[in-house]
């Protein structure tokens, strides 16, 4: 290898993260049974030849199913209760002093009678902790969706430190808004987790149209921001609406690393090197360019916000 013009390159620590993306069909409204399914996933991974993963990603609304309507009050849990239950589940499968591992789990959150479509990032094990709970901002309320009738909007997108890189979470439609991915990346996220529940529609080609759409969205978002994107989707039918799993990992070059079938329960394993984020951002410095123009962009956002009414009719409710 030719030496660098600037002398020997400083070796960057190669941080490898082993991921497991889980797609499954929860039992509608049966929280206990769905914790049991999470336990089954832990058990399956414990016996997997690749060894236990660093991070396990579950879909949106994994503890209840997605379409719950007014039943959200019956299935929503406090985030502290979800965490405690995940800890006991992990201990039961892996032993009381198991090595730490992380999970991302979508669930309906009860915060004192206010409900959110949330996803938790938690480290499980002896020194475990809840690292972040993301509340979905963009609540689809059109066509087959009716989220804003039943849950409240989240208000922020955060990046947070984990043992496996700096991360952010967006839930399903959150990630359809490229600006949401931009904020996650600006806040330093190297890997973006997307728990999702995408009802399949559009059967005019060899795979459902929403599967193609999600792949395209992720490819562009990952390449533009030089970020890993890990997507885990529900599968199975809920009241005639079939979810497309197609859980996938998109690399920071916009390179699709792995993708599960759109139907059927599955666990997809892959390993990533966070070093790729540095390389991708150096090769395509779009995020750096964005930062250079951030002030102007913010001004333009402010101007557009000022031109509009203070709150949309939906937000007034």
């Amino acid at each position: 290898m030719a030496p660098s013009r600037n002398g020997p390159a400083k070796a960057r620590p190669r941080q490898v993260v082993n991921l497991a993306l889980v797609q499954f069909a929860p039992r509608k409204g049966r929280v206990e049974q769905n914790f049991e399914r999470i336990e089954q996933v832990f058990a399956a991974l414990r016996h997997d030849q690749e060894g236990f993963p660093s991070v396990i990603v579950f879909p949106e609304a994994s503890l209840s199913g997605y379409f719950v309507e007014g039943g959200v009050a019956e299935v929503a849990l406090k985030s502290s209760a979800v965490y405690r239950r995940l800890q006991t589940t992990a201990a039961r499968v892996c032993g009381r002093k198991h090595p730490s591992f992380d999970v991302v789990v979508g669930f309906y959150e009860d915060d004192g009678g206010k409900f959110y479509n949330s996803a938790m990032y938690a480290s499980l094990g002896e020194h475990g902790t809840v690292r972040h709970v993301h509340r979905k901002l963009f609540l689809p309320t059109y066509g087959v969706f009716d989220e804003e009738r039943f849950v409240s909007r989240g208000r922020s997108i955060e990046a947070f430190a984990t043992p496996h890189g700096r991360a952010a979470i967006l839930i399903c439609e959150d990630a359809c808004h490229s600006v949401a991915v931009t904020i996650a990346a600006l806040r330093g996220a190297q890997i973006l987790y997307i728990p999702s529940a995408s009802p399949g529609r559009g059967l005019e080609e060899a795979e459902p149209a929403n599967v193609r759409m999600w792949r395209d969205i992720m490819r562009v978002a990952a390449a533009e921001h030089g970020i890993f994107i890990a997507y885990a989707g529900l599968v199975g039918f809920e009241g005639g609406k079939g979810f497309t799993g197609a859980s996938r990992l998109m690399g920071p070059f916009g390179d699709l690393r792995v993708e599960a079938p759109f139907d059927g329960a599955a666990i997809v394993r892959t390993s990533i090197s966070l070093q790729d984020v540095h390389v991708a951002r150096a090769a395509l410095p779009a995020l750096g360019d964005l930062e250079s123009n951030l002030a102007e962009l913010t001004t333009m956002f402010d101007e557009e916000t000022a031109r509009r009414p203070a709150a949309s009719p939906r937000q007034k409710r």
Binding site: L203, E204, E205, A206, P208, G236, F237, G240, G242, D263
Partner: peptide, 25 residues
């Protein structure tokens, strides 16, 4: 053309639907 249909995909989709709704649920 909202009427275009990939019949192989439609078959797979509807067979999954029947299994999920009947046996699964």
């Amino acid at each position: 053309d909202g009427l275009a249909l990939d019949p192989a995909l439609a078959e797979r989709w509807l067979v999954n639907f029947l299994r999920d709704e009947m046996i699964g649920r």
